[in-house]
Design a protein around this nucleic acid. Structure first.
Lengths: 233, 233, 233, 233
DNA sequence: CATGAATGAGAGTTCATTCAT
DNA sequence: GATGAATGAACTCTCATTCAT
């Protein structure tokens, strides 16, 4: 429900000093807040201008810093992006993992729960969808090291795994399950693609209904003879 | 109709220079062919590297030119991109406009024809989808002037209009129609999003069936009492 | 005698056009001259300011260029230094290889010829000695890639080899010969060290006599039982 | 005599902090020790990385400090280098001044004593030779102010003066004496140049014999009619 | 005295663009 | 029409230095 990431942690007004008596309580709290400030500024800049379009100077300006100051918190521009997207996928992971159907035991309900968690995450945090842009497109922009790209891709696979596993438990072949999950992800991405670009506003409200319809269709394509548990994975 | 800049002459096979002895009657054909050569090179470069990732030097190298030579044909790098995407939207426009149902007179068939034309265009020309990347995402990257961005957005709206009009003819409110069309476009974009990035391969073959299912669902939501307002607009 | 490297190749005054009729004669002659111009500017800058002290901006300014223009000729600042020192060692190599004693057959005369060639090269081209500074000190400054460093070290070894071989032919053990050659090199470097820094001027004229005295002492230390030729190398 | 900044207190073993309970009587001794700690760290860093290659951050890290803390002891990075080299020349000065021949009265013995003291100083403290690198080369690197450079040069002249004076006492013209001393210094520098770079090891043991041979040759060049001017200066 | 945050200048490098030839 | 040389602005990043705490 809460959007911890989209909500900016209480950032002290620059220059506003933390009272002395509360300082030793949590060491590094200020630093964390400032790091989050940079991340928030970077998130906005990447959102509007893209990975390469958003210069470090621009990010710094939005955060109220000099470019050099960013390097107190991150080793490189790429690492800012990596921290942002990595943390986003982490939250997605947790969100999907935490979701479970109201009635236990029903396999289709499990699939529905996982898939809906997936959808809802991006519905409630549309900027995270945008952040993963290059990742989802399989792009390799100049500013992104193959090493980081692979690390992020692995995280995305992890996030998709629970839904895929649920489908396998429902009787799908592993490969088909993966295909379906990818299609699902594509659907979500497409459905939300334009819903936050200012192109249309009202669409956003309908998107969930459209998604559920899609989900129903997918579940209706369940394999005819449900396999006995045991050989999945 | 189209501005000369936006017209794409039949693109010669890359590297296939028109031999001098077969110079066609029409003066300036050579120039057009070379212009097209540059555009083809730029299309490939933009596709692989993105708008900012593809340098003019890279584009020129692929076209067999020096960077300076590009300026014989285009005023700026941005204009190369604009010509490319503008022409792509032009072709989309024509493709959608040319489509019509087998049986005339049936309103749903018209919608289906228009929507399918839309889908097939991008299915058959996935690179055009990728080219419109920044446009579809509402981005404003460093290398793209707001003026050009708006011009391109207008073209996209034109391309979406026929389908929207067909829905209105079917009885939808204008605003609802536009919403549905945008959703349709988003669906297409999402469906095709991952189909050419190497993430999955088999999905590509299923995408049309998935699209038709989506289209059926949309038509099934047609407004109860078909209005007789005729053709507004 | 001639100092081809220290002498600047006839560089056309910037903006002075080469007459048209002479242009097709030697393609690239202009480019070579300008490359040499950059190298000469870099040599001077490195000499006065050191490898890290001489900025690309400074080098460019001395050459009458913008920093970016340097990259038309060299891929990096390090490559400028590498070209400079590499070519210097190349000339040293050739100079030593070309030297031979007046009377053939005398082994000590051969050693003397090789060693003197070595000494004279740096005596006549003192800036080359300075250029190799980091190399001779075995330093690994920030601006120098290990790869380049190794390549240059290999070239220096090649230049020292003829003298070492001559000593081996004289009857020294290979390892002793190498030690002596290194000592010789150190002596040369020390002797010339201050002779071109403006600290003293007249010393330069005496340096050769001092060197010959050192050389005599070295030859006087020749191993007692001269080995029969055959097993060297 | 020496400025407090230039005085080097007995350098504590790196990492060996003086325990608080043994705090010596003299106030400020702790501060001096910490200052020396910084100097020792800087010496090592400059030795390995050069003047510009060694960042303040690196120096501070080796001393167990943050960069800002350095400014409690030195006004600038340049001043650290100045203190280091200045103190080195000071020690050289004292070492040469303290040396005297076994048998008093012999003028050549005095020269030999002074010159040998000079050589031995650098033989026993090769890092000091390396530290004076930029000075001995007459370089003006980016990080070195002309003012400091001149101050250090004056100190070097002071250190060379006793030997030069001894030569004058032996009958040389003042100018010739200075030339000889500079040559001597160059010889020392060259002889020791490679003895601590790992290039060769055994050479180090021979260096003194080679130096004495050189010294003999120099003394043999003594002017024919020894002057009786006594002690000028 | 020492820290951690921040600055501003400057580093090497890339790139769209211009222009004489 | 095309080239090669060159520019100038912008980029990411480093570093000596300052200062409130």
């Amino acid at each position: 429900m809460a959007k911890p990431v989209e909500t900016l942690p209480a950032v002290p007004a620059r220059g506003g000093r933390t009272p002395r008596e509360t300082r030793p309580a949590r060491e590094g709290s200020d630093a964390d807040a400032r790091r989050a400030l940079v991340l928030a500024a970077a998130r906005a800049a990447f959102f509007e201008l893209g990975l390469e379009g958003a210069s470090l100077r621009e990010i710094a300006k939005r955060a109220g810093y000099t470019p050099g100051a960013i390097y107190s918190y991150f080793a490189s521009k790429e690492e800012v992006y990596g921290a942002l997207l990595g943390e986003s996928l982490e939250r997605l992971n947790e969100h999907v993992a935490a979701s479970s159907p109201a009635r236990k035991g029903s396999a289709p309900a499990l699939v529905r729960a996982k898939a809906t968690a997936f959808f809802d995450f991006y519905r409630q945090n549309p900027r995270d969808l945008d952040l993963g842009f290059y990742l989802f497109h399989g792009m390799q922009p100049r500013g992104l090291t193959p090493a980081l790209n692979q690390r992020l891709n692995a995280r995305l696979r992890d996030a998709l795994a629970p839904t895929s596993d649920a489908l396998v438990a429902l009787g799908w072949h592993a490969q088909d399950a993966q295909t379906e999950v990818t299609a699902l992800f594509a659907h979500i991405a497409g459905l939300l693609l334009l819903s936050h670009t200012g192109r249309i506003r009202m669409f956003h409200q309908e998107s969930r209904a459209l998604f559920e319809r899609y989900l129903d269709a997918m579940l209706a394509r369940a394999p005819a003879p449900p396999k006995t548990r045991g050989e999945q994975r």
